[in-house]
């Protein structure tokens, strides 16, 4: 029998680590509490920026149709259509996460973000605020913040991810008191 089998394995969870590599340079969601439900409401500006892609994509596809049917310019129609489809699909993929509501429901006792396996609210033991610097290849870097939850089983799940620090701090406090868990400020100094 292996000696190690008798030892208790210790796993340390680094709460200062961010969960997502990327993040937007704007306020994407605000936390709202209504009775027994707390949910994340996407901001209108965030939605509008996604809609731009859909509108541009549809416009390019319309132009491609015009080129194809009226002017019989097949090469340009394919070029425009390709761009249009790509941009429109991109816009749809961007807006989709905003359309599904992330919620904490005290009646059902479940946190549902439509991505990860549902988490029972009683299993959530704390929330953490993390910071990171997003580095862009073709632009200058900017600060971004995450609000993550930790379950008693050691799972960490992202709740909020945007660059409005003040709003994120407010939302963390709101969700923390709604869930009755502590909020840990795990922001750290990032040395570049």
């Amino acid at each position: 029998m292996n000696e190690n089998d008798n030892e208790t394995e210790t796993v340390t969870i680094d709460l200062t680590r961010t969960l997502l590599r990327d993040g937007p340079k704007f306020l994407s969601h605000k936390a709202v509490v209504m009775g027994d439900i707390a949910f994340l409401r996407p901001t209108i500006t965030a939605m509008l920026f996604c809609v731009i892609y859909i509108v541009v994509g549809i416009f390019l596809m319309s132009l491609a149709t015009y080129q194809l049917l009226v002017l019989s310019k097949y090469d340009f129609a394919i070029f425009l259509g390709g761009f249009g489809i790509a941009i429109c699909t991109f816009g749809i993929s961007l807006i989709q996460p905003f359309l599904s509501r992330v919620s904490f429901d005290r009646k059902t006792g479940v946190f549902n973000n439509h991505k990860d396996r549902d988490v029972k609210l009683k299993n959530i033991i704390s929330l953490q605020i993390n910071n990171k610097v997003i580095q862009r290849k073709h632009a200058l870097n900017y600060a971004c913040y995450e609000l993550n939850l930790l379950t008693e089983h050691g799972r960490r799940i992202n709740i909020l991810n945007h660059n409005d620090q003040q709003q994120l701090l407010q939302d963390a406090e709101l969700l923390g008191s709604f869930l009755g868990v502590e909020v840990n400020d795990c922001r750290r100094e990032i040395v570049l």
């Binding site: 990327d22 993040g23 937007p24 340079k25 704007f26 500006t45 965030a46 509008l48 920026f49 996604c50 731009i52 892609y53 509108v55 541009v56 941009i87 991109f90 993929s93 961007l94 997003i134 862009r136 073709h138 632009a139 900017y142 660059n163």
Partner: peptide, 16 residues
């Protein structure tokens, strides 16, 4: 329009 969405909106995905 596309530039606007990136520089005003700061959309991370299109930049990536």
């Amino acid at each position: 329009s596309l530039v606007f969405s990136v520089i005003v909106g700061g959309m991370p995905s299109i930049a990536s």
